[in-house]
Design a protein around this nucleic acid. Structure first.
Lengths: 153, 153
DNA sequence: TTTGGTGCAAAAGGTTTGCACGGCG
DNA sequence: CGCCGTGCAAACCTTTTGCACCAAA
């Protein structure tokens, strides 16, 4: 997963200005490996920037996603973001339902599927949901972020 | 997949009133095997019911989903609905990007995934997207519904 | 200094809710 | 005839857009 520095460098190289807010965003996603909703990000950022507006958060999330430093995924309860995987080969994810951190799965089932021969495959989605090692015993809410982020879905 | 009659029977058994609108909804989902958004359904129904309101469509979609006759899935471009599968065993789907019809896949990759041993699996999602037999040659828009429903995602 | 980022306000979907009336059972 | 389903209006939530001001480079 991209580090804080890699995120900042990528944004800088693309000519984006590195504002204080964007540094904080980079750090948030660089250090937190789970998925975050726009609201999660807004609430987190609000603690530092009192006059923060929702639209700036959305704008920055969008810019960072278009730049490729963030990945955007649709869940049942809405859009979420996390730092892009730095793994360059195709892989899937296990996603923790508690802390929403992701763990790579190298195995890909796409060629094993009993496709109707006539079906021309374009893309696929394979995701495993459950509880990671840390979240099985301690269902307490002590996570990396002090805001409550888990529990969703 | 549930037939028009099965849908109506299920609704009737649950004490729901079978209004003309609900009959039409049952027929729509009973005969159309693809995913439809609330907007798709609204536009289709509008052709028959001039004074139709959006909220009634939403209410009925929700009721039918809670009753179990409709399945609700989140795509990148929003929520969509289709008649529930009548297959009683676990399976996955191939979904046509053109007509949005679905085809069952019996194969399930869940036990083959190289899980971090510590990860406690709760659920999973495996979907294959592409073009079905009918939609490969004819990219024309002749589908079951006369409204444009495909192309999405 | 110049261009791009931010906050504010408002708009734009999509979905839900309260209420009164009309139709199903 | 009683209660549920419907249409209407409005609220609500998330996301986007226009504009003027301020700050990064």
């Amino acid at each position: 997963m991209l580090s804080t520095e890699q995120i900042i460098d990528a944004m800088s190289e693309q000519g984006l200005r590195i504002t204080d807010q964007r540094k904080t965003l980079a750090r948030l996603f660089g250090e937190h490996s789970g998925y975050l909703s726009a609201k999660d990000v807004y609430e987190y950022m609000c603690k530092k920037y009192s006059g923060l507006s929702f639209d700036t958060v959305y704008r920055n999330l969008r810019v960072m996603q278009e730049l490729g430093v963030l990945e955007q995924v649709v869940f049942e309860d809405g859009m979420k973001f996390k730092a892009s995987c730095s793994e360059d080969h195709h892989h899937h994810h296990m996603i923790c339902l508690q802390c929403q951190r992701t763990y790579p799965i190298q195995f890909c089932p796409i060629h094993l599927a009993d496709a109707p021969e006539q079906f021309q495959v374009v893309t696929h989605k394979f995701e495993v949901f459950g509880y990671c090692k840390d979240c099985q015993q301690s269902t307490s809410d002590e996570e990396q972020m002090s805001t409550k982020s888990g529990g969703g879905r």
